[in-house]
Structures are given as structure tokens and as C-alpha cells.
């Protein structure tokens, strides 16, 4: 009973939306990249670099907007690096993605030790300031006044609109489905693929920034596979923005449940509850979906 009353509370719903934010940002980013035909496994790494760069500069300067700008800048550079590997050299996108993930995770660990002499976490930072006039909204003021959460809620319709109703979206999708045809009709395939990668890097960066700001620090391993879960959400959402939204809501629902279960004494051991998000992801991948159908030229170097 206690669990049911917990689920139908505003606190729980707010919790779902908070967990939802980094997943949806990452999944939407991954979707833009894959719609352009580039498999981006590096979402995890982009999130780590976003969270880490944001925290470092915020700690040093004391201004979160400097941290945000720096993180976005670094992630844009990483997008360029990724693009050189997969577009110019036409290398295996999955291998490069995993390599980048290891590189970014390693660099974050290294610089954490180098700058802060700690292997676990950075000094505390303040949360990003909120939107003042939205804070007074009853019940949801706390959620809606958070810039990044609000942005990710708006992103649902924006990504739907951009992908299906704009010239950019049509061209991007054509690069993912049939790059030769797109090139023939005058689309610069490489630059569109790059835009896809850049969007994924920036959105994952926001996801990382949000995680760090919400936790008031960067700690080692805090991204904890969220980038991969985001990609799973994109697959389950069949590369469609609205479905991706529901897939992310599904994952966040279970994770919020996990957190509630840890607080309410249920008799279920903690270690088993902790694996829930990953187990649910696997089970959903196994059971609920038919054979997945990515964009036709997804992952094919061009």
C-alpha cells in the first residue's frame, strides 16, 4: 500500500521527471546522430565530459554559466574529433565510440586526481540558478523552474518538429537512409552528419551538466551507464521522438520506483534494487519490441 501511495504523489512524479531529463537529452541526441546515419555510442563519454568540465570550471571560477559555456565548448571540440574519425577516416563508428568513452572517462579520472587530488569527487558546487518567476507555480514550481528540465520538456516537440517539418530534418534523415541519393540531390552529406553528431554532443553535454548540478559535484562513475540506457531508450523508441519520450518515461519510472524502494522497507535487498534500471532495460530490449529497424544507412561509413 505504501508503495502505491508513493507512486501517486507529486514528489514521485517530480522524481520521475528529474531522472527522465538526462535520459531524454541523451536519447534525443543519439537520435539526431543516428538519423544522420552515425551510430554514436559515445553519448556516455559526452555526458561525462559535460559533467566534469562544467564542475571543474564552476569550482574554479564560481560562476555556473562559465562552467556551462566551457563544457559546451569542449563537447563541440569532441564532436569535431569524433567526426574526423568517423567521417574523414570512415572508421568503425562503434569502435571509435567506445574508444572515446574510455578516453573521456580516463581523462576525467586523471584530471580529478591532478586538479583536486581526489579519486572520488570534486569540491561542492552550487546548483544552477533557477528561473525566478516559475518557482511560484504550485506543486511543479521546483521542476519547471529548472532551465534544463524545462528545456528537455520543450525538446520533445522541438525534435519532432525539426526532424519531420523542416528542411534540415528532411535532409538529415535522407543522409541516414540513403546518403548517395542525398548527395546526388545536392545535400552535403558530411556536413549534415556532422550537425547530427554536434547536436548529440551538445544535448548529452546538457545531460551531464544537469547531473553534476543536481548532485552539487562531479563524482567518479556518476554517469553510471546513463548514456547507454539513453541509447537503449532510443532503440526501444524506434528512432521516433515521441516514442523515445515514452521509453525514457518508462525507464525513469522504474528508476524512481527503485529509489522509493530503497527508502521504504520492503525486504528486497538493496543490491537487487540497484540493478533494476539495467535489468529493466535488458528485459524491455528482449521482450517488448519486435526486431529493431534503424535508419537504413545507420553505421555505414560514407
Amino acid at each position: 500500500m505504501e508503495i502505491l501511495t508513493t507512486i501517486f504523489s507529486f514528489v514521485f512524479l517530480s522524481q520521475v521527471l528529474r531522472i527522465f531529463t538526462p535520459y531524454f537529452l541523451g536519447a534525443t541526441g543519439a537520435n539526431f546522430s543516428e538519423r544522420g546515419g552515425v551510430i554514436n555510442i559515445a553519448i556516455e563519454g559526452f555526458m561525462i565530459s559535460g559533467a566534469f568540465c562544467f564542475t571543474v570550471i564552476t569550482v574554479i571560477s564560481g560562476y555556473s554559466f562559465l562552467g556551462i559555456s566551457f563544457a559546451l565548448l569542449i563537447n563541440s571540440l569532441l564532436a569535431v574529433v569524433f567526426s574526423v574519425f568517423v567521417l574523414k577516416l570512415r572508421l568503425n563508428q562503434i569502435l571509435i565510440g567506445v574508444g572515446l568513452n574510455l578516453l573521456i572517462a580516463g581523462l576525467a579520472k586523471f584530471f580529478m586526481m591532478y586538479i583536486f587530488k581526489s579519486s572520488s569527487n570534486t569540491p561542492r558546487i552550487d546548483e544552477i540558478p533557477r528561473i525566478p518567476f516559475l518557482e511560484s507555480i504550485p506543486y511543479f514550481g521546483n521542476i519547471l523552474s529548472d532551465y534544463i528540465i524545462l528545456f528537455s520538456l520543450i525538446l520533445i516537440s522541438v525534435s519532432q518538429f525539426v526532424l519531420y517539418k523542416t528542411k534540415f530534418g528532411l535532409r538529415l534523415r535522407s543522409c541516414g537512409e540513403n546518403p548517395e541519393a542525398a548527395e546526388t540531390s545536392g545535400v552535403n552529406v558530411h556536413s549534415y552528419k556532422f550537425y547530427g553528431i554536434l547536436i548529440s554532443a551538445l544535448l548529452s553535454c546538457l545531460a551531464g551538466i544537469w547531473l553534476a548540478s543536481n548532485q552539487n559535484s562531479y563524482s567518479d562513475g556518476m554517469v553510471a551507464g546513463r548514456g547507454y540506457i539513453a541509447i537503449a531508450a532510443m532503440i526501444i523508441g524506434k528512432w521516433k521522438p515521441v516514442n523515445i519520450f515514452w521509453a525514457c518515461i518508462l525507464f525513469s519510472f522504474f528508476e524512481a520506483l527503485e529509489i522509493s524502494l530503497q527508502i521504504i522497507p520492503t525486504g528486497i535487498p538493496n543490491q537487487l534494487i540497484q540493478m533494476l534500471p539495467y535489468l529493466i532495460t535488458l528485459l524491455v530490449l528482449i521482450g517488448f519490441i519486435g526486431k529493431t529497424k534503424p535508419p537504413a544507412a545507420d553505421g555505414v561509413p560514407y
Binding site: A224, Y228, A232, L282, L285, K291, T292
Partner: peptide, 15 residues
């Protein structure tokens, strides 16, 4: 299901 083994093996690590 055609799901990339990268995703599933990472999830399995956690589980």
C-alpha cells in the same frame, strides 16, 4: 532483435 551487443553487454555488466 538486432540490438547492438555494446548496449546489452554494458547493461549485463551492471546486472
Amino acid at each position: 532483435k538486432g540490438v547492438s551487443e555494446v548496449i546489452t553487454t554494458i547493461m549485463m555488466n551492471f546486472v
